[in-house]
Structures are given as structure tokens and as C-alpha cells.
């Protein structure tokens, strides 16, 4: 088993096959279908025993840096642009890299306007693991 981080960003990275308007421009039915898809996706991962966890992040936030001796930290924010920010993540524990790719592909097909897949780019990152017991 290997753990992967499935990272969602606020707009997905460009270029995407089709650029959609932001969600508040969708019809209520399209919004509802998207929410339902996300709930079903999480439920499927739980049912298959591959879900480790997931969380959503607020779009608030800032960049912070050490400010130097005796000075307060430097705060740059709130963010002017949210499109490159992390929106949330799933952590999955799967048998193979192929399975992780398959699951990310499913999530990327979440429905948007007209029920079309939104083709959202997702960042898929393997976790560093503990060293194995058998090394040779």
C-alpha cells in the first residue's frame, strides 16, 4: 500500500480543455450535481477502504516569513489571487500508482455546467514512507 496526496487547487491549473465560469454562475441544478458528485466520491473511497482523510481550506490566508532578529514576522496577505492556492485535499492509501492515477482521474471528471466534466487538474503526490524492513 502507498499513500498519495490528491491536491485540489482553487481553479485547477491551466490550460484546461474547457474554461468554465466560476461556480456561482452555474444553475442551481448544476451546483447540486457537483456537490452530490463530491459526496459520492468521498463515500466511494470510504467504502473501498482507500480513504485516509480529506479537508478543505478556506481561501483566506497569507504568506509569512521570519522578520529578522527582534522583529515581528513579515506577513504578505491576504492573497490577491486565489487561483494558484490549495483548496483542499484527499489522502488515499492505494495498492499502486496506477490506482492513484485512476482515482485522481475520476475526481477530475466532477460535473460542471451542462453536466460536462470540468477536467480539473489535480496534483498527485506520493508520500515519503518509512524505510522498508527488507533492504536487499
Amino acid at each position: 500500500m502507498a499513500k498519495y496526496l490528491l491536491l485540489k487547487h482553487y481553479r485547477g491549473t491551466t490550460p484546461t480543455p474547457n474554461q468554465f465560469p466560476s461556480m456561482d454562475q452555474w444553475t442551481p441544478e448544476e451546483v447540486e450535481a457537483h456537490f452530490q458528485f463530491m459526496r459520492d466520491y468521498a463515500a466511494r473511497l470510504e467504502a473501498s477502504g482507500e480513504m485516509v482523510g480529506g479537508d478543505a481550506l478556506s481561501s483566506d490566508g497569507a504568506w509569512v516569513q521570519y522578520g529578522g532578529e527582534g522583529k515581528p514576522p513579515v506577513v504578505d496577505g491576504p492573497f490577491a489571487e486565489t487561483k494558484d492556492l490549495i483548496a483542499g485535499w484527499f489522502i488515499i492509501d492505494v495498492d499502486s500508482y496506477d490506482r492513484a492515477v485512476e482515482l485522481a482521474g475520476e475526481l477530475s471528471a466532477a460535473p460542471g455546467p451542462g453536466g460536462e466534466p470540468i477536467y480539473e487538474w489535480l496534483e498527485l503526490r506520493p508520500f515519503m514512507s518509512a524505510p522498508p524492513a527488507v533492504t536487499e
Binding site: M23, Q25, W26, T27, P28
Partner: peptide
């Protein structure tokens, strides 16, 4: 709030 935005948009 997204639902509300979509409703008023419609």
C-alpha cells in the same frame, strides 16, 4: 452560499 448565488443568478 454557492447555492444562493446560483439561485439569484438564475
Amino acid at each position: 452560499q454557492t447555492r444562493q448565488a446560483a439561485r439569484v443568478g438564475q
